[in-house]
Amino acid sequence: MKIMLNGEERTLNGEWSLTRLMEELQLPPQRVAVEVNRQLVTRACFGQTLLHEGDQVEIVTLVGGG
């Protein structure tokens, strides 16, 4: 399936939860926040949240700002 990950197309094969995606990307879950299709997915729900064709996933963190 194809998803949009931070604005870029990405192809994933098989079943993907957000937990698996975090592991694949080597991102520590406590340092990111995730939206799927503009809806916040809390960390506790990463395991049960499965990705689907066409999903728009945003993974954000904190950066310098005023």
Partner: peptide, 19 residues
């Protein structure tokens, strides 16, 4: 201190983080 929310850099994770 104030911070902003931005996309994680997925292809450059060796970069240092503000955190």
């Amino acid at each position: 201190v104030t911070v902003a929310v931005r996309r994680e850099r997925l292809y450059d994770s060796q970069n240092r983080s503000l955190l």
